[in-house]
Each structure stands twice: as C-alpha cells, then as structure tokens.
Design a binder for these strands. Structure first.
Lengths: 211, 211
DNA sequence: ACCATTGTTGATCGTGCGATCAACAAGAGA
DNA sequence: TCTCTTGTTGATCGCACGATCAACAATGGT
C-alpha cells in the first residue's frame, strides 16, 4: 500500500508558504466556490495542518475576499489587454461583449454571483466587490468614451452607460450559470442592445472583425 | 417582569401549523436570505420547538426551495397582472422594464441571486429556479410576440430575445444590490437597449404612458 | 556541536447546523 | 370521566466551522 500521507510538512519560508496558501485558495474557489474556502479545506490542499493556514491569515473573511479580488482582477486585466490590441472602439466593444459571453469563464462568473450574496455578511468582501466592479466599469467606460470621441457612438453619460452594459453582461452570464442551454445567439442579441444604448449604427458592433 | 416566553405552544391543526411554518419561512427569507432558513430560526419565529419544524418538512432543502418558489412566483404573478392592464405591447414592455428596476423589490432580487449559487448544492432548489425562470421568460416572450404581431417590434426569435431581456434585468437588479448609488437613469438606458434589441423605434418604450 | 529562532502541529473550545426519537400532554370521542 | 390519538417537546447525535495555543522540531547562526 502507498505510504500514509501523514508526514510532517517540509519547512518553508513564510513567503513561499503564504504563496502556496494563496494559490490553493484560488484553485478551491474556482472549483468549488468561495463557500468552500475553509481552514481545513485549504490546509488539506496545501498539505499542512489547519492551524497553519490560520497562522498566515488574520481570519477567513480576509482570505475569502483577497481570493475573490485576485481571481477577478486577473480576469479584468487579461481582457483589458486583449482590448488594447483592437484598433477602433466599435471593434473593442464588440470584442468585449463577445468575449464575456463565450461561456469560457463560468467559474469566474459563479464567484461573482457568490460574492454578491456573501458580501451581505462579510464587509471586507463587500468592499472588495465594489472595488472590482469599479475596475470593470472603468474598462467599459473607456471604450464608450473613445467611441464618443471618434463619433462611432453618441452617448451623453458614458459612466452610466458603462454601468448598464456591465450589469447586462453580468446578468446574462449569471443566467448561463443556471440555464446554459437554449439561447445561443447571445452575443448577437446583446450587441444589438448595446448598439441601441450607445447610439451606434445597427450592426456596427461586429462579433468577428470581418465576416 | 414579563413572563418568560418558554410556554408550551398551543396545539393546532396540521394545516394551520404548516401554514405558520410556511409564512415564517417566507418572512425570514425576505429579511435575512435563504441561508437564514434554519430549523432553529424558523422554529423560534413560529414559537415552537425545532423538532416540530422538521416534523412538518421532509428536509430543509425542500423548505428552502419551496419558500423560494412561493416568493418568486408571487412576484411574477403580481407583475403579470399589472401588465394585462396596459393596452399595447410598447407600453407593456416599458412598464415591465420600469417596474422591475424601481428598486422596490431588492429583497426578492437578493433571493434570486442567492438561489443561483445555492442551487449548485441543492438540486431541488436548482429545479425550482429553472422553473421560475421559465415562467418569467414566458411573460417577456408574450409581450415580445404581441409586439411582433402588432408591428411595433421586429424580432425573428422572440424566445431568445425574451431570455436576453430577462438576463439584462436580472443583472441590473443584482448590480443595484451592491451598488445602489451612482446610476439613476437605469430605466431609460435599459429602454434604449431593449428598443435596439426588439427593433422598436428609438424612444417608443415610454416609461410613463404620456410625458 | 550547540542553541535560539521560528515554522508547524494537532488537540481543543465554543458555536451552529440537520436530523432523530422517546417521552409528554392536549383534546376529542367513547 | 376515561382513553386513545396525535401534536409537541427537547435532549441528543454526528458533523463542520473558525479560532486558539502549548508543544514540537527543523534550521541557520555561532
């Protein structure tokens, strides 16, 4: 039989151990949600005693909210990077809508939705949620303002419209969490809706750069 | 001093007691969320022993999902009733958008969002969520199809568009759960977006019947 | 080779959860 | 008035959680 894995964990530097815990928390959250972030769960994944996890964190609420922030911020930056490669606002907005609805980030969506409710009882997390939402909104707002300057869009309140688009995307993603089936033209329909909101020409938000 | 409230509960008929438990569950869910629906919580509100609640329910998952269904179905019917009083599809869709975003139903929204995540670990609840979402979608679809018949809208796939509008509304509501401040023109912006999606004339979805 | 530093353990406490069930008592029918 | 049905109790079990901390052991500096 394989040796029982109850060996004493090798001694590591605080920075290294902290990184391990952070990474384990990230994986657990993506696989099983923020609710699964328990002392014992994280400890088991790292392969240490539960007390050690507690030793590296002020409390679990903090680990939950920092894990949420890490996961979500990474996604925001990744997509912001993709955007910067597109030449004009219409293509950027189209890419944004298309990318966010491609169902390849359902795990992150699940974490968003969970954070919205968990935030009611975890003030640290709630603050983190607001912060990350602001970051996303700024991404959208930047694109809308660019389109306004170009003349491709016609929006009086770019900030408000950015919030709206963000909310719409979040809602459609959350929906696909429960009802993955049925609708498939999601990107196209949403593009039509966004066009209506930003005052763009109907069909100008292409999903592919050229069909 | 007031008498200590540890008196034996008066004996009631099963139907009456069951109704009390159902109602207490409803109140708790609206005030503190589905997570607060515990045996002891419900029992305390009704004023009985915890065992009695368990006696009237197969298990807590069932109580959670039936409470969710009761709350949400009531809202659906209430709004469907309001809709039927409006004369044409444009006004109906406008009323729908306006009513759902008026922030007077944040408690129900919170329950929706909570149910989306709780459904991952409570299959009974997940089924209930899908059922209630279908009901909402049908309401939207009916309005869209009416508008199509009238000529007010121009939609090829009414079902898909209905799902989209539903998702957008849900997302914006969930957003206002965390970020209540900031945007105020929500109804107007969403109306613009929906117009783009259903192919209606810009500005035809009035928020007020006549301005 | 020794020792002080410090990363690590794991038992332990208090809390809250769902579920179970023998015992109890209120009330209706005889 | 007696009795039997049945609504009701509350202690109890097993489990999981966050948090705490004395004891332990690996390691690097001397």
């Amino acid at each position: 039989m394989s040796s029982t894995p109850e060996k004493r964990a090798v001694r590591k530097s605080p920075a290294e151990r902290a990184a391990e815990i952070t990474e384990a928390a990230r994986e657990i959250a993506l696989e099983a949600g923020l609710t699964a972030l328990t002392l014992r769960n994280v400890a088991a994944r790292v392969g240490v005693a539960s007390g050690l996890v507690a030793h590296y964190q002020p409390n679990m609420d903090a680990l939950v909210s920092s894990t949420f922030a890490a996961i979500v911020a990474a996604e925001t930056q990744e997509i912001a990077g993709l955007l910067s490669q597109r030449p004009n606002p219409s293509e950027r907005l189209g890419l944004l809508v298309e990318t966010l609805l491609d169902n390849s980030r359902l795990d992150v969506t699940a974490i968003w939705v969970e954070a919205w409710t968990l935030g009611r009882r975890n003030e640290t997390l709630a603050a983190s949620v607001r912060e990350q939402m602001d970051a996303w909104q700024k991404v959208f707002q930047g694109v809308v303002e660019d389109g306004n300057a170009t003349g491709a869009f016609n929006v009086s309140d770019a900030a408000a419209v950015a919030w709206q688009i963000l909310g719409m995307v979040d809602g459609l993603n959350a929906q696909s969490l429960v009802r993955w089936d049925g609708v498939n033209d999601r990107g196209t329909h949403l593009a039509r809706a966004v066009e209506g909101m930003v005052g763009a020409v109907r069909g100008s938000l292409q999903t592919e750069p050229r069909a």
